[in-house]
Amino acid sequence: MNVFRLVADLMHLASILILLLKIRKTRSAAGISFKSQLLYLIVFVTRYLDLFTHWVSLYNTAMKVFFIASSGYIVYQMQRRYRATWDPALDTFRIEFLLGGAAVMSLIFHTKFTFLELFWTYSIWLEAVAILPQLFQMSRTGEAETITAHYLFALGAYRGLYVVNWIYRYATEGYWEWIPFLAGMVQTVLYADFFYVYFSRVMRGKKFELP
């Protein structure tokens, strides 16, 4: 554990708490892409399949349980109590391509051809692009609530800081893996436009609006 990874995990934790707060406070999931939330649920379930077979630490297990449970809760609540508050007509990204593309990528690029390893790799590739339906929806509407922008910033910072963690680990431990590094870079590049607007507008107290 190093400071980059710790802050990354805390940002991830914060992002979900901010999202839950947004939904509760505004009593609405407006502006949130259901498809992205569904993809994150698939990401965490497929990545943490080793939850009961591979013990790392109490911290690791507690975080895994929280990420699976909270993403499941959000998907469930968006289909139930908050079903009428968001508009599926705005959430039109074709996630079949992301699900299929991540499957192809994990079949080509993986370290071992085993059940757990393939699902782990699938989750890594899928996570890289899981934000696309959300970004696509925002590019259509051209704006986002400030609290939603904070949620997305914390979520993007999580994977961005993991990339820094891997570079740091290579420098200090000689530890290196290409797959999570490349996937983290892809996600961070996809986020570039969002980060630019976030830093230039939201951090200065303005509304998140695309130019």
Binding site: D50, V56, N60, K64, W120, W166, Y175, E177, P180
Partner: peptide, 10 residues
């Protein structure tokens, strides 16, 4: 899956 590797991260 290397012990202490990316599989042990989140």
């Amino acid at each position: 899956a290397v012990k202490g590797g990316a599989h042990d991260e989140l």
